[in-house]
Amino acid sequence: MNCQEVMEYMQRELDGDLDEYEKATMTNHFKQCPDCAAMFERLKTLSAELENLPHVTPSYSLVDAIMPQLEQLSFEAAGSVVEPQEAAMPKRRKSPARGASSRLRQLTGVIAACLVAGTFIISYNAGWFNGSHSNNDMSQAEASATAADSPMANYDTSELKQFVATDPQASSEVKSESLDTGMSLKTNVTEQGGIVSEQDGGGVAGGSSSELGASDVGSASGLTAPDSNKENPDTGTDTSISQSPTEDNSRTLESLSGEPEKAPLAPVAVVSADGVYSAEVVGYVLKIYEASDHKLLLETSRKNGQIANLSWSEDNKILNYEIHLESGGIEKYAVDLNTLKDEKATH
C-alpha cells in the first residue's frame, strides 16, 4: 500500500468511514512510514479543531427581523391560493403584482365608480362636450398618441380606449355612441365595470386586462405603466392631464382616480399548484416562467385571439388554455412543460 492510498484511508478514518481491516492496514503502514503517521496526527488535529469551531448564533432573531417582509408576502398572497411571490425582495419590485385578484376586484370597483362620478361631472358641462367632439374623435383615431388640447378630451380618450380594449368588436359602435351624450358615456363606464368583474370571475383575460392597466395609468396621473405595456401611448395622456390648465372637474377626477396608483392592474398570471411555474398572458402571447426566479421558459407565438381559461394539469406539467377567436370560435391549446412544446390540444 502506497502513501497516496493511505492518505485516502486517513481521510476516511477522520469521518469514521473505515472498517477494522482497513484501520489495521493503515496502522501497519504508519509503523513503516513516519511521514504518514505525522500527517495523520496533523489531520486529526485539524479535524478536531474544525469540530470545535464556535457554534455561532445570530446576534438578534432573524425571524423577528424579517417578520414585516413575511407579513407583506402573506398579504400579497391573501387573495389567491397560489404560493406567495417574493415581492418583498427588492429585485422583484418592478414586476407587476400577481396573485392579488381580490384586491384587484375591489380596485376595479373603485375605478369604475370613479369613472362614473367623473363622467357625471363632465356631462354637466354640456357646452364643452359639443365643442370637443372633433378633438375626441381625432385622438381616438390616432390611438391617443398625440396629447390633445383639452384635459377633458384626454380623460375621455383614455376611458374610451379602455372600453375599446375590453371589447374590440364593439369598438366602432361605441365610438359614435359615446361621443353623443354624457348619458351614453355613463353607460359605457358601467358596462366596462361589468366586463371587468366578469374577467375576474373567469380567471383569465390577458390582453384586455393589461390594456386596462395601462388605461388606468393614463387617467390616474403620474403613474408608471406596467412593464409589459411599453407600447401603450399612455404617457401622452398622462402629461397633458397634469400640465394643461386644470378645470375643477379634472382635478376632481385626478384625486378620485389617484387611489389605485398603488396597485396598477397586473397581467393575468396563473401559478401552477406546486408553485414551480407561472403562466402569464401578455397581449396575445402566452409566457411561462419559472416561478422561483421569473426565468422565461417559453413564449408562444402571437395568437390570433384572446388567450383565456389557463389551467394547469394535476401533475403541474401541462398548461391548458383556450384561444377565443374574434369569429367566436374557441381553439384549445396545451403547453407541455416536459418538452416545452405549445400545441393544439388533441381533443
Partner: peptide
Amino acid sequence: AAQEALIRIYTKIGS
C-alpha cells in the same frame, strides 16, 4: 444571506 434564505424557505415551503 440567512434572512434571504429564511424568506425563500417561507415562500418555497410548498415545493
